[in-house]
């Protein structure tokens, strides 16, 4: 069984060493692929120095297209499983195995790592929490299944979803949108609890008006996704 870890990274030179250390220490059996999304710092060089496979996009395409590049690679190289793992140090390598279990038992096609399931006590700002609450209730309603953490980028997919994502992956708000598209195409989604770290380098400067604006855009994108024709 061949497994690929896809790490999208955009200007993560400060974090990349720590992320790769964490992976080396806690994760076995994966090929590591870093997608450098047109970084302007030394992200790419640092990753190459560590002996990781790197795909460098010629310019910044955004998280959706970067992750999709990883799925295209996984599809062409014949990987059986793919895991998305953020390059900013938020995800924990020792949690990845939890994602794999439902896939290996063939109980799901995609497994979503949730910060809010189980014994987790993930701390987050109030606006962000309210936003995630609204988003998760809307998505849960649309796909008829409880989703607690729709913006989590910590997810594992089987071969069938790798094929699907290599052809169709949302650009704008890929995490919540991908859930809707997968549901429409008839794939099975499961959530498992995972632990995440609080963000190291503060980039989370989401102010209330921006959060509201973001919510409106995401909801709009999701409703449009519901109308889209999806190959299944």
């Amino acid at each position: 069984m061949r497994k690929l870890l896809i790490i999208p990274a955009y200007n993560e030179a400060q974090n990349i060493d720590r992320v790769l250390d964490d992976i080396n220490e806690h994760l076995q059996g994966f090929d590591i692929l870093l997608i450098d999304d047109g970084s302007t710092d030394s992200t790419r060089e640092l990753a190459i120095k560590r002996g990781v496979d790197v795909i460098s996009l010629p310019f910044n395409l955004g998280i959706g297209a970067a992750v999709q590049t990883g799925y295209i690679y996984a599809q062409r190289e014949g990987y059986d499983l793919a895991v998305q793992f953020d390059g900013d140090g938020q995800h924990r390598a020792d949690q990845v195995d939890r994602l794999l279990e439902p896939l290996l038992r063939d109980e799901a096609d995609m497994v979503l790592g949730s910060r809010f399931l189980g014994e987790n006590e993930y701390q987050s700002g109030l606006t962000r929490m309210v936003g995630i609450k609204i988003l998760s209730s809307v998505i849960s309603m649309l796909i008829g299944q409880k989703i607690t953490d729709p913006t989590s980028g910590c997810r594992a997919t089987n071969r069938r979803v790798i094929e699907f994502f290599s052809h169709l992956y949302p650009d704008d708000y890929p995490e919540p949108e991908a859930l809707v598209l997968l549901h429409k195409a008839g794939f099975r989604i499961t959530e498992v609890p995972v632990l995440m770290r609080q963000r190291h380098m503060g980039r989370s400067t989401i102010t209330a008006p921006r959060a509201v604006y973001y919510m409106i855009k995401v909801l709009l994108a999701i409703f449009i996704d519901m109308l889209k024709k999806v190959p299944s």
Partner: peptide, 13 residues
């Protein structure tokens, strides 16, 4: 344009 950029990146690798 996105597809082209992705293909270029995959080809470079």
């Amino acid at each position: 344009n996105k597809t082209l950029a992705q293909e270029i990146a995959l080809l470079k690798k």
